[in-house]
Structures are given as C-alpha cells and as structure tokens.
Amino acid sequence: MAGFLIKRILQAAFVIVAVTLVVAFAVRLTGDPALMLSQGAGSITEEDLARIREALGVNKPFLVQYTDFFLGIFTLDFGRSFLGGTPVIDLIGNALPATLMLAFASMFVSIAVSIPLGIKAAVSRGKWADQFIRIISLIGLSFPNFWLAIMLVLLFSITLQWLPPSGMDGFASFLMPAITMGIILTATNVRLVRTSMLETMQSQYIMVARAKGLSESTVLYKHALRNCAIPLITYFGLQFGGLLGGIVVVERVFNWPGLGTLAFDAVGARDYPVLQAVITVLSMLIVGVNLLVDIAYGLIDPRIRTE
C-alpha cells in the first residue's frame, strides 16, 4: 500500500507540473492584456502599451513568466489581478469555498439518491420499480444543465417566488444550483450503481452468503455493497473532475460567486494571473480527489492494500 501511494503521489505531482505548463501557455494565446486594459482610453501609443506590458510583467520571456508563476504556487503567491490589482489568492480565497460547497452538495445529493435507487432497481430487476427508476433516470439524463437551470429559475423564482434566482445567500440559495448539477449526475449514477450491483449479485460469494442463512438485507448491504463500491468509487472520482468543469455554466446562470464565475470574468479580461490560478487550483482539486479515491480504494479492497 505504501509503495502504491508513493507511486500515485509522484504521478500527481507530475500531472500538476504538466497542467500548469499547458495552462500558462494556453492563457497567453487568448490575446494581449494590454490592449484589453487600454480599451476606451482614447488614443494609446505603442509606447503606452509597452509600458503597460512591462508593468504587468507580460513582456518577459514565457519561461521566466512560467517559473515565477510556478514557484509562486509553493508560497500561495499567484500575483495580482490585472484588474484592480487585488492579490489573486484573495480572489481565490473568496471563490473557492462557494464552489466547493456547491460541488460537494451536488455530489452528496447524487450519491445519497443514486445508491438506494440503484440498489432498488437491481434487486427488483425487470419489475415495475426497476422500469420506473430506469425511465426517470433516462429523463434526467436528457436535460442539458443550462436549460434545466433556466427552467428551475422560471418555475421557482419567477412564477412561484419560493427561491432566490441568483447569488449565494443561505440554504435556500443552494437548492437550485445543487439540484441542477445533482440531477444529471444522479441519472448517470443510478444506472451505474444498478449495473455494478447486478454484477456483484451474480457472484458466487453472494450465493454462499445466502447459503449461510443471512438475511437478504445483510447479504445486500454487508456482502454486496462493499464489493459493488469498488468500481463506483473510481467513477465518482472521475466524475468530480467533470463536475468542476461543468460548474462554470451553472455558476454563470445562478450568478454564483465561485471559481467558475471568477474564471469566466478572467477570460473576458485576459486576466492571466487569475485565470491560470483558477485552473491550477481546479486541477489540484481534481488530482487531490483522485488521490483520495486511491486511498479509499485501498481501504475498501484488501487486494490493493496488501499488494
């Protein structure tokens, strides 16, 4: 297990270096920030632009800029925003909790709903409960999330006026964004849990557990669930990455003050420091979650732990 973890941590470090390099490079392809900053400032000479570039530090060679940025990560110094000069770390510090809360709330909703439903569908395979759950999950899968978000706003905020349409202000404001993100995840996960459970229930050791005289619920929740969780955990980890990617759209619709909104604004302003910091933080989150998945894997599956 120790060897396995060290290997994974080394891999994670490599991934982060690669991601930051690609991000820093790609961000600089979006255009000249000096031009963007000087928009509407009347007549601008080439010298003015050069001075702005020097002030922002974007006139230095790429590798120098990258090294500054990369070394900054270790001291949590991501530089200052090109807009207004706020330290980037403060911007991230404000946005990160909002995004994390939303992401974990959606993951939690999806897992809490999909596991019991998936198991129910698996044990009543072919019966009406199974058919019903599968049809509902298919409908859930068919919604694009931006459309669903708008429909929810229309119904609950504008027509019924039950929930706030945007912003982050208390528990009520969580519901719609979390449901929007959660529904699509749940729809996929129900099918996944169902398939994994069906496969596990075919195993010989399930027959053996029944032959011991154990009750169906012990067979299901003790013997089957833990085995069925092994492939699911990997998938949930991967899903978390996809979730963070999809969060940009949902944050925009609900005007959620998270990393997605921050990144969206930074792209428009060619605010390199903010953009590369947001993407770096997101990729570290994804790598971190997958590392946790690997550890969880070892805890659940002794075949990995004792290797």
Binding site: Y205, V208, A211, K212, L214, H223, I300, D301, P302
Partner: peptide, 25 residues
C-alpha cells in the same frame, strides 16, 4: 428457512476461488 440454512443444512460450492467474499477476512 434462513434459520435452517447454514445451520442444519450447509453447502460447499464448486468454485473456491470465487466463493469467499474478497473484502472480508
């Protein structure tokens, strides 16, 4: 029947490699 199964009547299966649950000791 569950009270009899495993207590009065027990069974051994063909596939020893897959008859034990891999996640429990």
């Amino acid at each position: 029947m569950r009270a009899i199964r495993g207590k009065d009547i027990a069974m051994i299966f063909q596939e020893p490699m897959t008859s034990l649950n891999p996640v429990f000791t």
